[in-house]
Amino acid sequence: MGLEDKLPSGILLTTVEGVFGWMRQASFWPATMGLACCAIEMMAFGAPRFDAGRWGQEVFRASPRQADVMIVSGRVSQKMAPIVRTVYDQMPNPKWVVAMGACASSGGLFNNYAVVQGSDHIVPVDIYIPGCPPRPDMLIDAMFKLRKGPVMHHPIGRHADQLRDQAERDALAAPALLELGGPVR
């Protein structure tokens, strides 16, 4: 027994967050964070065959200040890691990160001194795409999953700030993935 029973037909109830999420997911723009092989597939994602413009995502922003999602496309070297983090820090909230490909997800083929073993060591990752490199179709799928999940249900207002700060504190306090061991890694 709630308010919805008393409404006339044609009226829907939702939350303000839901409305925000619904509007946000319509057109969110990626930052150009092209690193390696996956960057070429990321360009193919924006090019005619796969045409990310069909749902308003072909606008790759050169400035992180105008971007909503960072696609880490390729291997992150030790030398590049601080720059990836800087770009992430410069993006306005709310922001999401896609780890595109095996290298960005886990270091992939390059299990060595030069490559950071997964971009989640430096930025919080929302969605991981397997593949070396993943096909543009897989990036499209990941973008849709990102929209339906984290973007659609992103909190707003003071609630959002609290959650973000809490996540930051948790991330700093949590042990590194390397130290966790076992199947949780």
Binding site: A36, S77, K79, M80, I83, N112, A114, V115
Partner: peptide, 21 residues
């Protein structure tokens, strides 16, 4: 050097056929 991924060193620990990849 921002994309240095240690391929040359890594190949020293893989067989010749794996080097192709």
């Amino acid at each position: 050097g921002f994309l240095h991924s240690g391929i040359e060193k890594n190949m020293e620990f893989k067989t010749y056929a794996q080097g192709s990849a």
